[in-house]
């Protein structure tokens, strides 16, 4: 882990500590707390689980047991861009698994994993409720309806071009300074 990631983590834990103070020490707040952490940081780091347990007066393994029961919680940092491929019934009938496979092949990771550069992560989701647009993939907050294997490359390429453009801009502005 490099230095900046370490500082980032420290900042995260400080934030979580102050966030916890806003919650009453009641077990019924457990889910809401875990959801807030997941929503803000994209994952619930194991030390965060301990902090939550301590705050609510529960044992850590109990909090761990609850958190691992639900699909929503991740325990590793997600990629910068989260790709979620819908595998609901309608998407399955229309070839959602082929779309998932294409993302997996293109990024060389499996569902549930993050690319080594932490740019992308892929997840399977049960149904996002856009069945009429099947097959569907959601990248960050954008829903891509009527996906096709050939569109997969385009989606990823789009992000890569965007990243390059940003880097170039950064370099340009740095060279101007």
């Amino acid at each position: 882990m490099n230095l900046s990631a370490r500082t980032e983590e420290k900042v995260m834990f400080d934030h979580i500590a102050s966030m916890l103070r806003t919650y009453e020490k009641k077990r019924e707040n457990l889910m809401a707390i875990l959801q807030e952490i997941q929503g803000k940081y994209g994952y619930v780091a194991p030390p965060a689980l301990q902090m939550v347990a301590k705050h609510l007066g529960l044992s850590s393994c109990e909090v761990y047991g609850v958190a691992t029961f639900y699909n929503q919680f991740r325990f590793n940092p997600p990629g910068k861009h989260q790709i979620r491929v819908c595998l609901g019934t309608a998407c399955h009938v229309r070839g959602g698994d082929i779309i998932l496979e294409n993302f997996e092949r293109k990024l060389e990771i499996k569902a549930g994993e993050t690319t080594p550069d932490r740019e992308f992560s892929i997840d399977r989701v049960a149904c996002v409720g856009c069945c009429a647009l099947a097959p569907v993939a959601i990248v960050d907050d954008t829903v891509y309806g009527h996906m096709a294997p050939s569109k997969v490359e385009g989606v990823i390429l789009g992000f890569e071009i965007e990243k390059e453009r940003k880097e170039r801009e950064k370099q340009d502005s740095e060279s101007q300074e």
Binding site: P46, P47, L49, Q50, A53, L58, S59, S60, C61, E62, V63, Y64, G65, T68, F69, Y70
Partner: peptide, 27 residues
């Protein structure tokens, strides 16, 4: 009063788990 071990994960993957870091149980 509090379990020091609990069910973790779900479905076919359910296990009994201690929670700890670097082999040291937190509880």
């Amino acid at each position: 009063g509090q379990p020091m071990l609990s069910f973790a994960k779900r479905g076919f993957d359910t296990v009994i788990s201690f929670f700890g870091e670097n082999d040291k149980p937190v509880d």
